[in-house]
Design a protein around this nucleic acid. Structure first.
Length: 910
DNA sequence: AAGAAAAAAAAA
């Protein structure tokens, strides 16, 4: 029996917007199997209107609500409605049919808005009868693609072909009626014509981000329980009485409720441990900041208190209304953790005590961090009415589970700390980049250690700064030293984003230095160094390994703390073995250990050589790979290093007699650099004959030669006086030996290629949120970092009978529990070049146990079988061993022990 | 001919 068809307005409430997948349905209560489309779009519109920060778009709430509510109009199409047959709106579409062409509702939505319903939307753009004041079609399309592209990338399809689908003719009247209903709910005044294309472009990106964000919140079923079609009989009533109150609560539970920035009242109020501000902190407290969006670059020595100076700057920018929050980007997960720990103490002081801002940790492994997980409030358990009244609870950290459980959402937290990669993905055509943009918008972007990047990442950084400035954001960059070229590049990028025609030229060579960049002017402000940090290190170039060994043995005999930074892991292990005697037992430190062992070594190294180490503990020899130049706060009486590029040599030298100590076995500050002799007539194997593995790691021999040669003449590293000079001199490769020019040129070529690749990959702000102007989620994910060579992640495991245990659980039995499984596996990882190890052998009798072990890994870890290798270890006389094949398919033996780490040898055949 | 360290990974 044919159902009597309803009129369109009545029928519309039966179209669904959200529904359970068929198999999870419970037939008992058919009325709430689905959430009506009208209800869903009003929910999302309500969220958008109430989200703090949505006022930055500069739209009237009625206009904003209208635009956002249109985001899912494509779901009216039968090709969407048929997806859940039980929810098919027969009241409008007649009896169910499967015969509709497959399509995407985001692309269909765009077509409805831009083409089939243009007239119905006229009133939204009609300012007067003067056609001069009308919006252009292309301008309207910018808005439509922003709201339609809410599935992580711009909606796309073969538009001309898709238009031919007869369903459009059939659905258009419904869509027009749908629009009428929304117009009645919101009653939006006409959108003013934008006086500049820049403003419209910004609105396009902002609207795309906000739609996305509001859709994610508005799609949470726990916050927006399904309602019956009857509930939206009166759409206006639903919006006011249902959508808005639910949205308000949802926003609070998402941890995105309104917060108020405290006024800036001096660095001591922000950090209780600071009694006397350092010079750079003094400057950043008092200097006049440029008007409008600002870029601040702080170059100063490690230990100068840059981070606090930067947070002071961020607070001042926030307090002056230029930002509502902060994201701190760091080069590694480890440094992100350290920064998180520092912010835990201070971040609440940025806001009024009555505000409850979230502090989120944003990187791929944040959920393996016990401390972060422990502060995550369970969804819905957050008491939204709770306002702490005593200081103790006001000081407590918080982060909603909704924000904390996904790295893209984590960027939305008022204060975020994470890897730089999380921010960079905002300017790459990866899925939900607009979410990340929304997270960064209106925040101060604080990038720490921003010298630590290659050409590819530098170009991404420039793109990020350009984008951030164009969106009206401010940024702070921290570094020990940047070359003039890099500082100029980043400054120009920021000014580009501000639409400055004639960007500033930087000139200062002072150090330490604060660079203040605004739209109007640029100021380079020399700054004093902290007295305690001023120092002179004597540099000795040594051209034979035996002498280094001799120096180390000599120092060890005097009970000094001595370290040798070697460039390759194999060299580290070989030298450690060669140095081992009855009295010397070197500590070996590199990254080819299972993470749990590496962390244990790190703790041991900190204990022995850290600020609080005792004289007895310090009498030790450490042989380390370049991991040592990373952020560990340790110091040595004597330091040796293989030759490396200048900035790294300086960084390594920072580990020499860094702390004040009453008495040292060796008082003079001397750095010994193992390097071949620098002469003009060297041959092209200058470095590879002398330190073959170093030649593989630092592939620009000219740069190494130049570094050694500059240091040979300069003879000392003097902070702060000659730091800038050393860096700039070493970077100048115009006059290197003839034989090394080939190397220099190919390194330059690689750099240029990387830069080109990055330029090709990053989003073009100007081109807008459009499908064809970037490789949006093409076949290969656009990476935040280039990998020069493919690596595999090896997960170490112990096999005993039929049980496979992660190595970490074997080392630390507290990791044996069910809920620690993921952490245990992550702590058992080592990264190895695929060339060395491509496949691990699993004996047939262990196959079953091995696949049982793998089954608890996440879907991509299981999926990428050649990327995540399970290595089964069995004990042998010197530790543990397993077997596998290298990249060429040859059999190899893998040796593992806690002293030297992972080593791979060719298998002895026969 | 040699090879550090570092990040990311679904959906609305």
């Amino acid at each position: 029996m044919a159902e009597a068809k309803m009129n369109k307005t009545d029928a519309l409430r039966y179209f669904w917007g959200k529904a359970h997948p068929e198999n999870q349905m419970q037939a008992s209560d058919s009325s709430t199997l689905m959430h009506p489309l009208i209800a869903h779009v009003l929910d999302v519109a309500a969220v958008a209107i109430l989200l703090p920060g949505s006022d930055r778009l500069g739209l009237d709430n009625r206009q904003l609500g209208m635009l956002i509510a249109l985001h899912d109009i494509g779901k009216l199409m039968p090709s969407f409605q048929k997806k859940v047959p039980a929810c098919w709106p027969k009241q409008g579409l007649g009896s169910y049919s499967e015969n509709y062409i497959e399509s995407r509702h985001d692309a269909d939505g765009f077509l409805l808005l831009s083409y089939f319903c243009a007239e119905a939307l006229d009133s939204l753009f009609k300012n007067s009868d003067d056609a001069q004041l009308d919006w252009l079609e292309s301008e309207k399309d910018q808005l439509w693609r922003a709201v339609a592209g809410h599935h992580g990338k711009p909606a796309a399809c073969d538009w001309d072909k898709r238009k031919q689908d007869p369903s459009f003719k059939f659905i258009a009247p419904y869509a027009q009626q749908f629009i009428q209903i929304l117009l009645k709910v919101f009653n939006p005044p006409a959108l003013p014509l934008f006086h500049s294309p820049d403003c419209l472009r910004r609105l396009e990106w902002q609207l795309a981000g906000l739609t996305n964000q509001a859709d994610w919140i508005g799609s949470q079923k726990t916050w927006f329980p399904y309602v019956t079609p009857d509930a939206v009989m009166d759409a206006t009533a639903y919006f006011w009485n249902h959508a808005l109150p639910h949205a308000q609560k949802a926003i609070l539970q998402a941890g995105l409720g309104p917060v108020e920035v405290a006024s800036f009242q001096g660095i001591e109020r922000l950090f209780s441990h600071i009694q006397k501000p350092s010079p750079v902190q003094d400057v950043m407290q008092s200097v006049a900041l440029p008007d409008g969006p600002a870029l601040v670059i702080i170059e100063d020595m490690t230990g100068s208190g840059k981070t606090e100076a930067a947070l002071v700057t961020a607070h001042r920018l926030m307090a002056s209304g230029r930002a509502s929050g902060l994201f701190v980007a760091l080069p590694t997960m480890a440094t992100a953790h350290a920064m998180y720990d520092r912010l835990v103490e201070a971040y609440r002081n940025l806001f009024l005590p009555s505000s409850r801002p979230s502090l989120a940790l944003a990187h791929s492994r944040a959920l393996l961090d016990e401390r972060f997980v422990s502060v995550l409030a369970p969804d819905d358990a957050l008491d939204v009415t709770f306002i702490p009244d005593d200081r103790a609870s006001a000081a407590e950290i918080c982060c909603s589970a909704w924000l904390g459980r996904d790295s893209r959402r984590a960027l939305l937290a008022q204060v975020g700390v994470g890897t730089i990669d999380q921010a960079l993905m905002a300017v790459l055509p990866v899925k939900f980049a607009t979410m990340r943009q929304a997270g960064l918008a209106g925040k101060v972007l604080l990038v720490d250690e921003c010298h630590a990047y290659d050409s590819y990442m530098q170009e991404e950084m420039a793109a990020l700064l350009r984008f951030h400035a164009a969106m009206g954001g401010s940024a702070i960059l921290l570094s020990a030293t940047l070359t003039g070229a890099v500082r100029q590049k980043l400054t120009t990028a920021f000014q580009d984003g501000l639409r400055i025609q004639e960007t500033a030229t930087l000139s200062s060579a002072a150090y330490p230095l604060v660079t203040l960049v605004g739209a109007e002017n640029v100021l380079e402000l020399p700054c004093n160094a902290r007295d305690e940090l001023k120092r002179t290190v004597a540099v000795h170039l040594i051209s034979d390994e035996a002498s280094v060994v001799h120096i180390i043995k000599d120092a060890a005999a005097k009970n000094a703390a001595v370290a040798w930074v070697r460039n390759s892991v194999d060299d580290v292990i070989a030298s450690a073995q060669a140095l081992t005697t009855d009295s010397i037992k070197p500590i070996v430190f590199h990254a080819r250990f299972a993470m749990i062992d590496r962390l244990a070594i790190e703790r041991e190294v900190l204990r022995r050589f850290g600020a609080k180490s005792s004289e007895a503990d310090r009498a030790a020899v450490l042989i380390a790979s370049p991991v040592l130049q990373e952020s560990l706060d340790i110091d040595f009486d004597v330091l040796c290093t293989d030759i490396a590029p200048m900035d790294l040599v300086i960084q390594r030298a920072g580990r020499l007699q860094r702390h004040k100590r009453n008495k040292r076995p060796i008082e003079s500050e001397e750095l010994y650099i193992l390097s071949p002799v620098t002469e003009k007539n060297v041959d092209k194997n200058w470095i590879s004959h002398f330190l073959p593995k170093t030649a593989g790691v630092y592939r620009n021999a000219a740069l190494l030669w130049r570094t050694a040669d500059v240091l040979k003449h300069e003879k000392e590293i003097k902070s702060p006086e000659n730091i800038r000079y050393l860096i700039e001199q070493a970077a100048d490769l115009s006059d290197v030996p003839e034989a090394l020019m080939g190397d220099r040129n190919s390194a330059e070529g690689r750099g240029r290629a990387e830069k080109g690749l990055a330029m090709q990959n990053v989003l073009n702000y100007e081109a807008g949120y459009a499908p064809d102007v970037a490789l949006w989620e093409s076949d290969i994910r656009t990476p935040t970092r280039l990998e020069d060579e493919p690596h595999v992640t090896v997960r170490l495991a112990i096999i005993e009978g039929q049980t496979v245990r992660p190595w970490a659980a074997f080392i630390d039995s507290s990791l044996e529990t069910q809920h620690q499984q993921k952490r245990a596996w992550a702590l058992s990882e080592v990264s190895v070049r695929r060339k060395q190890l491509a496949h691990c052998l699993i004996p047939p009798e262990a196959k079953e146990a091995a696949s049982r072990a793998r089954s608890v890994w996440s879907w991509w870890e299981r999926e990428a079988e050649d990327q995540f290798l399970l290595l089964l270890l069995t004990p042998n006389e010197s530790g543990w061993q397993g077997s596998g094949r290298n990249g060429k398919g040859q059999d190899v033996v893998i040796q593992y022990d806690q002293l030297y780490g992972l080593q791979i040898f060719p298998a002895i055949s026969g």
